[in-house]
């Protein structure tokens, strides 16, 4: 059977937006989608012109700018974003969204000198209680959104702080390397979110690389999933493990174009975990700093290959830790172990 998969192009969105036979809510939804995609592409093109040097200047300016405002909205089980504003602290879900989003902002500020996802203090907006029994959390290019889970496979998606770190890191990537969401760049994009999501979780728990479990989404697993032996979405230390809901490849030789980013991310995830473990101590002190510079210290490269990212980290490990050659050795060996 032939499959001509496509997503809705902008002209179709615009046609629906003007279609009087659709409800007003449907027309608005299509109009918003078309306008958003247009604005985002324009923004991306503008950002692409900002050189690495200009990024450095922006970074120094960001140090003095106010930290980001954190806002939370309640969708009340509807699907219209953002929903109704929630005054702090709100219910338990809202409080987690407020507290953990603030903690992610602190994580990026304190460890990497980054002021919000755009390094210019962008407000961090989250919507909670999205839809009914919704088994997902996502970044839509502007904000985070969290479902409550169905109570069987998943519980409330704000319960795993690495999930909150994962979604916000999609924002960081959007405003830095601008990695695409398909092929090798897509796998890197997903991996970067898992790497910084897990690193954030370890930092929150003050865990060294040996104490960390390297699991993604451990705290959103519901009773039905746990009863079947699933412990996480992904395991960065053992991406192919049977206890993962998403079992991933562990070596670049298994990679093929067209793979979903949530699958191919296992390869760079394992490389980061191996590198951080070989270096020892805390993941955010050395390996994390190298990964952050590889992501943010260059002009955007949307179609980056995994090998390019790997080689960036090799070069950076040498320059950033010139007096500590074990960092380069650990990172180099980790990439070699996954075939890169």
């Amino acid at each position: 059977m032939s499959c001509q998969c496509f997503i809705i192009p902008e002209d179709v969105l615009e046609r629906f937006a003007k279609d009087k036979s659709l409800s007003e809510a449907q027309r608005k939804s299509f109009a918003d989608a078309a306008q958003f995609e247009r604005k985002w592409r324009k923004l991306r093109a503008t950002y692409g012109k900002v050189s690495a040097a200009a990024n450095t200047m922006l970074a120094s300016r960001a140090q003095t700018a106010a930290p980001p405002t954190i806002t939370v909205y309640n969708c009340n089980h509807g699907t219209t974003l953002p929903g109704i504003p929630v005054p702090y602290p709100g219910d338990a879900t809202a409080k987690r969204a407020f507290v953990e989003t603030k903690a992610v902002a602190d994580f990026y500020q304190k460890l990497f000198g980054r002021n919000s996802v755009d390094n210019a203090g962008k407000t961090l907006m989250s919507s909670i209680h999205f839809s009914v029994n919704y088994n997902n959390a996502f970044w839509n290019g502007t904000q985070m959104t969290y479902g409550d889970g169905d109570g069987n496979i998943f519980v409330d998606f704000t319960r795993s702080d690495d999930v909150i770190g994962h979604e916000l890191t999609h924002g960081v990537t959007q405003f830095s390397a601008q990695l695409a969401y398909s092929n090798e760049a897509g796998g890197l994009n997903e991996s970067i979110s898992d790497v910084f999501g897990s690193m954030f979780r370890q930092w929150r728990a003050k865990q060294s690389v040996d104490k960390a479990d390297w699991l993604i989404g451990k705290d959103i697993m519901g009773p039905g999933a746990i009863a079947k032996g699933y412990r996480c979405l992904r395991d960065m230390a053992d991406p192919a493990a049977k206890h993962c809901l998403s079992q991933q490849p562990t070596h670049y030789s298994q990679y093929k174009n067209g793979m979903d980013p949530h699958y191919s991310s296992g390869i760079p995830n394992l490389a980061f975990c191996k590198a951080a473990k070989a270096i020892g101590g805390n993941s955010w002190e050395k390996a994390g700093k190298v990964w952050y510079s590889a992501l943010t210290g260059f002009a955007p490269q949307p179609n980056m290959k995994m090998k390019t990212f790997a080689n960036r980290t090799r070069t950076l490990a040498k320059s950033m830790f010139s007096k500590d050659p074990a960092v380069f050795t650990a990172i180099n060996n980790a990439w070699i172990a996954v075939g890169l």
Partner: peptide
């Protein structure tokens, strides 16, 4: 009508900023 329009469409997809959303 919306579904019919989707099947009649033949545009190339453009990059989107959405991450982790369902399709």
């Amino acid at each position: 009508r919306l579904v019919e329009a989707l099947f009649k469409g033949h545009g190339k997809s453009k990059p989107s900023a959405q991450r982790d959303t369902f399709s």
